[in-house]
Simulated assay, not measured.
Amino acid sequence: MQFFVKHLYLIAPVLAIVALFGVYRLIKANDRPIPHYEPKQVEETWSAEEYMRHLNLKPFNQREVHQLLLKRTRQKPGVYLESLLPAMDTMGIEVVRCYHKVMGDDYVPVITSGNDYPYHKQNSKHYKNAAMDFRIVDMPMNKRREVAEMAQDKLGPRFRVLWEKGEMEHLHVEMVDVEE
């Protein structure tokens, strides 16, 4: 008994170490990986004839317009477009039409960003699901300007088309009337 009383001061640190180890084991038992989102890859694209035939068949609903955008474009790996505002799908189809008028019906535009890239500016419309980026770096310089100007003309005042130059050159299209 005298030994126990003599080393009584060690009980608190030992209990603290046991409690910390228990908390650590509890955390590790509940350690789940963060789920990884893999967007559905739409490999097929429509030919111009299939596209026109489909347009003449029936009116589109919101989901079909979104599917049409996915089929008429390619998406950079990791691009997330599922939460876009409905007007953005329609805008995307109009931008694709501009690409086709300038580059031909066989050209397939590439969407490089939706609401998926964590390094946009803090108040970017990308985070409000109201902006998309299109690749233009693979086009001749005069065609880039033509696509940007034609897209702004077609989309009107509801959208802003910005030709962002530099290291990550792309065509940025955003809705103007989304709350800042």
Rank of each mutant, 00 (worst) to 15 (best):
T45M: 10
T45E: 13
T45K: 13
T45L: 09
T45R: 14
W46F: 15
S47M: 06
S47A: 09
S47W: 07
S47I: 07
A48P: 06
A48L: 12
E49Y: 14
E49N: 11
E49P: 10
E50P: 06
M52R: 11
M52W: 13
M52C: 10
R53W: 03
H54A: 14
H54M: 15
H54C: 09
H54G: 09
L55C: 10
L57W: 11
K58E: 13
P59H: 08
F60R: 08
F60T: 08
Q62W: 15
E64K: 10
E64N: 09
V65A: 08
V65E: 10
V65H: 05
H66W: 07
H66A: 14
Q67D: 15
L70W: 05
K71H: 11
R72V: 07
R72H: 02
R72L: 07
T73P: 03
T73F: 05
R74E: 05
R74H: 12
Q75M: 15
K76F: 13
V79A: 05
V79F: 07
Y80I: 14
Y80W: 14
L81D: 00
E82K: 15
E82I: 08
L84G: 08
P86Y: 00
P86L: 01
P86S: 01
A87W: 08
A87I: 11
A87S: 13
M88W: 00
M88N: 03
M91R: 02
G92L: 05
G92F: 06
I93M: 14
E94H: 04
E94Y: 10
V95W: 07
V96D: 00
V96I: 11
C98G: 05
H100Q: 04
G104T: 08
D105T: 10
Y107Q: 03
Y107V: 04
Y107P: 04
V108T: 13
V108N: 02
P109D: 04
I111P: 00
I111A: 00
T112V: 08
T112E: 04
S113G: 03
S113M: 01
D116M: 00
Y117E: 13
Y117G: 01
P118C: 05
P118H: 09
K121C: 10
Q122V: 13
N123R: 15
N123V: 06
S124W: 04
H126V: 01
H126S: 05
H126E: 08
Y127I: 02
K128V: 03
A130K: 01
A130I: 09
A131N: 02
M132K: 06
